[in-house]
């Protein structure tokens, strides 16, 4: 299996023949949407109004929103972790912790700040694959930043980077998402636009982008909702008003 793309030419030739077209570069037929509904829906709202929309929505997806000021953020998070019984807390290696004053979660500084739980960091680099996955599967809680909060669906958006892998969001039992209030947007449209533009500008994207709406769930047994299946069984969004 050395060739990266196999059997393409014959396959596509069959399609073009059946369609009765010639192959063209995609730039020659850009998609022009017939309406702007995705952008019009929930447009023109203030951050406060969007937060209100999100607060209504999360009630339906078994998720809590806690509002706080930056000064109280640390206390709120420690309280949540305590409520869940402390234990191992998994953290991304992320400079934003320091920027918002959560030095206890800063990978370079955490040792100087004592807490009631064990902290483990998502280690940077491919060599730490097994170790990171193992830690995530043992973690009682994960705490990470949201890139966006989508008001309409009550979803947080996360993007992978070296210091924050994919399974950090899925293996721990509980999950806390820190959401700067300025990062609340109307809906998934704005998140898709953001990543679309980022790519268009030639910037590198994380290899995985997740929109996550609360805890995992399933209705597969007699259509009765069960909250908490593969992913976290409890999720809290902490919205920071002055960020």
């Amino acid at each position: 299996m050395t060739e990266l793309i196999q059997n393409r030419e014959d396959f596509l030739k069959n399609l073009t023949e059946k369609l009765g077209i010639e192959r063209q570069p995609v730039e020659s037929h850009p998609f022009e949407p017939m309406n702007q509904l995705p952008h019009e829906t929930l447009s023109g709202k203030t951050q406060d109004e969007l937060l209100q929309v999100a607060k209504e929505r999360v009630k339906k997806i078994h998720t809590n929103i806690v509002e706080t000021k930056q000064a109280d953020l640390e206390g709120i998070i420690n309280e949540l972790i305590g409520k869940w019984g402390n234990g191992k807390v998994l953290l991304p290696t992320d400079n934003r912790f320091k920027e918002v004053g959560l030095n206890q979660f800063d990978a370079n500084d955490y040792a100087n700040h004592s807490v009631d739980f064990d902290r483990a960091f998502w280690q940077k680099g491919a060599d730490y694959r097994e170790e990171n996955i193992q830690t995530a599967s043992e973690a009682n809680v994960a705490v990470a930043f949201a890139e966006f909060l989508l008001a309409e669906s009550g979803s947080i958006v996360v993007e992978t980077h070296a210091g924050q892998g994919r399974s950090l969001h899925f293996l721990p039992t509980h999950y806390i998402s820190i959401v700067p209030k300025s990062k609340i947007v109307p809906r998934s449209t704005q998140a898709a636009d953001f990543y679309h533009e980022k790519r268009a500008k030639g910037e590198t994207l994380g290899s995985a982008i997740h929109f996550i709406s609360g805890p995992s769930n399933s209705g597969d047994i007699e259509m009765q909702l069960v909250v908490g299946l593969h992913g976290p069984i409890e999720v809290v969004y902490v919205v920071v008003e002055d960020l």
């Binding site: 929505r57 992978t160 070296a162 998934s188 290899s207 982008i209 805890p215 992913g231």
Partner: peptide, 30 residues
Amino acid sequence: DNLLARSAVGQTLTTYVTFAGKKAEDESDG
């Protein structure tokens, strides 16, 4: 994704909407 979630399960979006490919060099899982 929006049309699908509303039509399939009556949700605004499914709980997980994921966009992903091969892991990047410096990432550890995926």
